Computed example of a mutant assay.
Amino acid sequence: MERGSRESFTRMGTLGIEEECFIVDERGRPTSGTDELVYEHDPPEILEGKLDHELFKFVIETQTPLIEDPQNARDALLEIRQALLTHAHDHGYDIAAAGLHPLAKWRELEHAEKPRYRAQLDRIQYPQHRNTTAGVHVHVGVDDADKAVWIANELRWYVPIMLALSANSPYWNGFDTGLESARAKIFEALPNTGMPTYFEDFDAFDRFERRMLETESINDRGELWYDVRPHTAHGTVELRTPDGQADPDIVMAFVEYAHALVEALAEDYEDGASGYAQTHRRELLDEHKWRAIRYGHDAALLDREMEGTLELGELVDRECERLGIDGIKDVYERDSGAEKQRRLLEEEGPDALCESLLLEGE
């Protein structure tokens, strides 16, 4: 029973970026390809140990190497993306990204044979059978286990800001859900997902993780799929909130925001701040997140005191000024991914929509 430990948390401010993407055919439609790209053909050297697949054979995952200096994050992301595109093109595929592929119909797509996923399908059944989601996960290193748990607690309020900005999945199983991020709602049907509860310290989280393993509620610690979690093997806080994105500038805006948040919260912890997390009811955090799922860029989210609402644009302005960043402001000022998808489908049709989701290479 593999578990992480307190000793994993040794480095502050490092980064790692995981992206889940879609394997598509020459027309941009989802197609099974992970057998060839992950198992049957050796990937470019930079992807060795950094390439895997998800539940469906059309969903593939990449991970950057450990990024010591945040200034190098963009180059690391682009190198991994280019290697994935080259690998896919060499074997007759292309790569797309969004929270959900708008033309993916889960009953028509193949599940992977990997024992881990077969066990999940058997245990979870329908919610996992239909889970065609894809997201962006950002890891930020933290140098103390208790600090990491405190930061993860505080980050729960920030999760919906990032989700609203990333909203890029209005379509699921071939129809318009009326949501801006249907991915988030589809994924929440799985156990151990969504907004986590408050943990007093690392020992409390460690007891929870151990209990879930010992009771066989999960098969490995990676099945704690909450929106934010301390990663007890990597020694990071992992933000798992954003929908997948084809545009690397949008991904990097979330990386910049996540890194700035963790660094700022680490300073608060070291200064002895009490924070807000203990006063935030999970029910209100769920409402906060629901508004992001439903309305995306047009959301009015709950304020830090959970007593009123603020428009997303106002929150973005405040966060950019407070943290000295600008990427999420640029994301907010553009059409959301969900808006763009709806407009393209209505005005230009499914071919244009599929083309818009393709990753661009050199």
Rank of each mutant, 00 (worst) to 15 (best):
P350K: 04
W290D: 05
R81S: 09
R229E: 10
D75W: 01
T132Q: 14
I151F: 06
T309K: 14
H111M: 02
L78I: 13
K114L: 12
L359F: 12
S217V: 08
L312I: 13
N131W: 04
H297V: 06
L353G: 08
P30G: 03
R342E: 04
I325R: 01
L109P: 10
F199K: 00
Y226M: 04
T309Y: 14
V38K: 09
D75F: 04
E45R: 15
V262D: 07
L323R: 05
T215S: 15
A145Q: 07
T62H: 05
W157C: 07
K114F: 01
E348M: 03
C21W: 06
I124V: 15
M12S: 11
I250W: 03
A258Q: 09
F205H: 11
P230I: 12
Q128I: 12
M12N: 13
R11L: 09
P102V: 02
L190V: 00
E188D: 15
V138I: 15
D268C: 13
A300F: 10
R118G: 07
D42Y: 08
E7K: 09
Q82K: 12
C354K: 06
L78W: 03
Y93A: 09
P102S: 10
E256G: 06
K147V: 14
M252F: 05
A96T: 06
I328W: 04
T132P: 00
L55P: 04
Q341I: 04
E216G: 02
A148C: 13
C354T: 14
Q71A: 15
F9P: 04
V159Y: 05
R342Q: 02
T133N: 15
S274Y: 03
D143T: 00
A96P: 00
M306W: 04
I161C: 10
E256W: 10
G222H: 13
R294I: 11
L302Q: 05
T232G: 02
H101S: 02
D227V: 07
Q278L: 00
D90Y: 00
R6H: 09
I95Q: 05
I328M: 08
L121E: 11
Y158T: 00
K105N: 06
L155E: 08
E40W: 01
G4N: 12
T279K: 07
A300Y: 09
E307M: 10
A167S: 15
E270T: 12
R322D: 14
G194F: 11
R211V: 10
A134V: 08
E61D: 02
F22M: 09
K289Q: 14
R304G: 03
P242L: 05
F58D: 07
K340A: 11
P230D: 09
A112M: 13
S217I: 03
F187V: 06
W290A: 07
A253T: 14
N153L: 10
L323W: 05
Q245Y: 00
L285K: 08
L109F: 06
L77Q: 07
K57V: 09
E223R: 10
L213G: 11
A260T: 06
Y276S: 03
I17N: 05
L301D: 06
Y158K: 01
T86H: 07
N153F: 00
L357I: 09
A88P: 11
Y226V: 03
I124P: 08
